[in-house]
Nucleic acid binder design. Structure first.
Length: 427
DNA sequence: TGAAATGTTGGGGCG
DNA sequence: ACGCCCCAACATTTC
């Protein structure tokens, strides 16, 4: 019997999964596959919370498939080697997968596609994780947008609700029982940090509540979009017309994805190269204090504690902590980006990079360099009762709480001077 | 999706 | 009643 292999990556669900649906229509035996990629896992600690989440989601998929007399094949290895073995073991006719737009994934998929072609196996990849992909929202002259507002307007004008398939038919799946691997055999350890369920209940009031971290009014959708445990089409279908500001955030996600696709240099370089001359101080001891949440600025510290303890940080506070690192400490945004990448459950290269460059002023449509958040003012405006900072800082208000590591006024003037000099040098 | 510095206005205290 | 000053409140400019 011919096999249609469905290669899961960041689409860890059975419902409304484009590649899976296509495979189920192929007429072949459908074999679901997930590979824990050596190249990715070697860079991560064994107890990484994202790996734990992936493991749990795969197990849930496996359980569902077992109830329907099937299973998912989960392995760890070098992706190319895994495919070579599968090609030898099965009569694979085609491979179905959902597109991934990150530079590493694009390169990996090209290699696999070539390997499959050598073996007369077709490779089908689908748009699934976004509403509009990289070439569907372009300026009139065919070039990509680099400014958000016109991008958003165009995005909305080309949007139309898409059909979804919530339920699937199981009889097309293969009927083998692949034993589900234990964590040890995959080289991972269960994390204490868990991804929480998302809720779209409060998205209609997002505009009013989003800036107040104590309200904890976020949807917690981001990790689920990152790993595809929910379909973006199903999320869109649930949004009511009064959720425009929340929808904007979903459009920011796709904005930065297409920026990453069209300008892959942003992974390592400033989007605006005229900022390349900024002389970052990059003081390691200061960076360490920022990471630990010991800067002496409560809003910064509370945010970092929340991040370290839960893998999540409120959006407003992400801006305050990022601005503080880049402007007050003059530490290269790439160091902050790398730290968030380690810690955030919803870490997404495109969004993390785009938002860090936004904060640093080096990105497309970024905050101007002289827009410097005052961490004290931000606290007054957005956490006036101190409920948020008290929650994360047990020493807040006591003599144990550290004094500010830098004077705000001095740091502000220093940032203005350093940025100005750096930009002049490079223009 | 800033905040500080600077400018303008107008009410009130006071001689 | 009037002019002068102070300064809070608001507006505009600047970084």
């Amino acid at each position: 019997m011919k096999v249609s292999l469905v290669w899961f990556r960041r689409d860890l669900r059975l419902a409304d999964n484009t590649a899976l649906n296509a495979a189920l229509k192929s007429g072949n035996n459908v074999l679901p596959l997930f590979i824990f990629d050596d190249e990715i896992l070697e860079e991560l600690p064994k107890n990484d919370a994202r790996l734990s989440f992936i493991y749990d989601q795969l197990k849930a998929i496996h359980t569902k498939l077992r109830k329907n007399n099937s299973s998912i094949l989960v392995v760890r290895g070098n992706v190319e080697e895994v495919f070579k073995k599968l090609i030898d073991s099965y009569s694979i006719e085609s491979v179905y997968t959902n597109k991934d737009y990150e530079p590493y994934a694009i390169g990996r998929d090209e290699k696999i596609k070539a390997l499959l072609a050598e073996n007369n196996i077709s490779f089908h990849s689908y748009k699934d994780q976004v509403i509009h992909e990289e070439n569907e929202v372009l300026k009139k002259d065919g070039s990509p947008y680099t400014v958000f507002t016109p991008y958003k307007n165009k995005w909305l004008s080309v949007y139309q609700a898409q059909s979804q398939t919530a339920s699937i038919t199981y009889e097309k799946f293969h009927t083998k029982n692949y034993p589900f691997p234990d964590r040890e055999s995959l080289g991972i350890v269960e994390s204490e940090i868990k991804v929480q369920d998302f809720s779209l209940n409060s998205v209609s009031t997002y505009e009013q509540t989003r800036n107040f971290p104590e309200l904890d009014s976020g949807s917690y959708l981001s990790p689920h979009l990152r790993f595809g445990t929910v379909s973006i089409r199903q999320v869109m279908a649930q949004l009511k017309p009064n959720s425009a500001v929340f929808l904007s955030e979903l459009i920011w996600r796709e904005f930065f994805m297409q920026i990453l696709f069209h300008f892959p240099k942003v992974v390592t370089h400033n989007f605006r190269s005229n900022y390349d001359g900024i002389e970052w101080r990059n003081n390691e001891a200061e960076f360490d204090k920022w990471c630990k949440g010991e800067t002496g600025y409560p809003m910064v510290d509370a945010g970092m504690k929340q991040l370290n303890q839960t893998g999540y940080m409120h959006n407003r506070v992400r801006m305050v902590t990022a601005s503080f690192l880049c402007k007050h400490l003059l530490i290269d945004w790439r160091m902050g980006e790398a730290y968030f990448a380690q810690k955030l459950l919803d870490y997404e290269l495109s969004s993390n990079n785009g938002n860090w460059q936004w904060s640093a002023g080096t990105g497309c449509d970024a905050a101007p360099y002289f827009r410097i958040f005052n961490p004290i003012e931000q606290l007054k405006k957005f956490d006036s009762t101190n409920a948020y900072v008290k929650k994360w800082l047990p020493n807040y208000g006591t003599s144990k709480y550290p004094k500010p590591m830098v004077d705000h006024k001095m740091a502000r003037l220093r940032a203005l001077e350093t940025y100005k000099t750096g930009i002049e040098k490079h223009s």
